[in-house]
C-alpha cells in the first residue's frame, strides 16, 4: 500500500469509512440492546438502556430457560431438521431427473417450478388448514413438516438443477460406459462433486424453516407443540414486566442462527445470490 493519495482522495476514503461505521452501528444497535439488556436488572435497563452491563447477572436467562423454552427448542429442532433433510433428498433426486435427461416439456415444468418460489405462504394457508382438519393432522408435526417440504422444494430443485447441469457430461458418461447404473452414477459421481451446493442449500433451508412463523402458528396450536418462533411471540406479553427475561429469551432464540451464520456465511451468501427469492 505504498500508493500516495491526494488530499481529496483521503477525504473521500475517510468519509466512506465513516459512513460504513455508521451503517454498521445502526445494524448492530438492536443486537447490542438485546444482549446487554439480558444481563441487566429491570431498573438498570429502564434507567440507562444504553450503558454496558457493569454487574452482569444471569437471572433473565434462568427465568427464560425455566419457562417452556426447552420444549420449544426441541420442537423447532425436530421440525427443522426433518423437513430440511427430507427436502434435501427429494430435491437432489428431482434435480438429477431434470438435469440428466432431456424430455419434452422439461423447461416448462422448470419454469412453473421457479414461479412457485414466489407464491406467498398465506395463499396456501386456508386450503392446507382445511385439508389438515379433514385428515385430523392439525397440531401434528407431520403436517407442518409436509408443508415446509413442499414450500422449500421449488427453490431447492432449482438451485441443484443449475448445479447438476454444469457437471461435465464426460464424467457421467465415463461412469456409464463402465457399467454403472443411473443410481450408481448419481451416488458415486454426481453427489461427491456437489458438496458446496448441498451445504448451501442446507443452510438456507435451515434458516428459513427455523425462522418460519405464520405456518407454525396455524398448524401447531397446542401448547406443547409450539415451535420457538411461535413461543417467543407470546413470550413478550407474558413477561411484559421483566425486560431482562424477554431479552434473554430473544438472545437464546438467536444463538443457534448466529452460530450457523458464522460457520456457514460463505455458503449462505452463495445460496442467496444464486437467485433466491425466499422471504420469511
Amino acid at each position: 500500500m505504498s500508493k500516495k493519495y491526494t488530499p481529496i482522495q483521503k477525504v473521500g476514503i475517510t468519509s466512506r469509512q465513516l459512513i460504513l461505521i455508521l451503517i454498521t452501528s445502526m445494524a448492530a444497535v438492536p443486537g447490542y440492546l438485546m444482549v446487554t439488556g439480558s444481563l441487566k436488572t429491570q431498573e438498570e435497563f429502564l434507567n440507562s438502556p444504553w450503558s454496558l452491563p457493569l454487574h452482569p447477572n444471569f437471572k433473565g436467562y434462568s427465568a427464560a430457560w425455566n419457562d417452556q423454552f426447552p420444549t420449544w427448542f426441541r420442537n423447532s429442532f425436530f421440525v427443522t431438521l426433518l423437513a430440511v433433510l427430507i427436502t434435501l433428498v427429494m430435491a437432489a433426486c428431482a434435480a438429477w431427473g431434470f438435469a440428466h435427461w432431456k424430455w419434452k416439456g422439461r423447461d416448462t415444468v422448470l419454469g412453473i417450478l421457479i414461479s412457485l418460489m414466489v407464491v406467498p405462504p398465506v395463499v396456501l394457508l386456508i386450503p392446507l388448514f382445511t385439508l389438515g382438519a379433514k385428515l385430523g393432522w392439525i397440531s401434528t408435526f407431520r403436517m407442518l413438516i409436509l408443508v415446509y417440504i413442499g414450500l422449500m422444494l421449488p427453490f431447492s430443485i432449482y438451485l441443484l438443477t443449475n448445479f447438476f447441469r454444469a457437471i461435465p457430461v464426460s464424467l457421467t458418461e465415463a461412469a456409464e460406459i463402465d457399467g454403472a447404473s443411473d443410481f450408481r452414477t448419481f451416488r458415486s459421481v454426481v453427489l461427491p462433486l456437489s458438496g458446496p451446493p448441498l451445504i448451501t442449500l442446507t443452510i438456507v433451508n435451515l434458516l428459513w424453516a427455523w425462522n418460519e412463523l405464520l405456518l407454525a402458528l396455524v398448524f401447531l396450536q397446542s401448547d406443547d407443540k409450539k415451535t420457538l418462533m411461535v413461543g417467543i411471540t407470546g413470550f413478550q406479553s407474558r413477561y411484559s414486566l421483566s425486560i431482562p427475561t424477554i431479552m434473554a429469551g430473544m438472545t437464546i432464540a438467536t444463538l443457534p442462527l448466529f452460530i450457523t451464520y458464522i460457520f456457514g456465511q460463505r455458503y449462505f451468501i452463495t445460496g442467496l445470490t444464486a437467485g433466491s427469492v425466499k422471504g420469511e
Binding site: L20, T24, A27, P30, Q236, M247, M250, T254, Y261, Q265
Partner: peptide
C-alpha cells in the same frame, strides 16, 4: 463490515419485532 451489514437479514423476525418493540 459485510458480515455486520448482513446480520439483520438472518435474525428471526419475531426477535426483531420484540426487540424493536422495546
Amino acid at each position: 463490515y459485510r458480515s455486520a451489514v448482513f446480520l439483520p437479514y438472518i435474525l428471526p423476525i419475531p426477535v426483531i419485532g420484540v426487540v424493536f418493540g422495546q
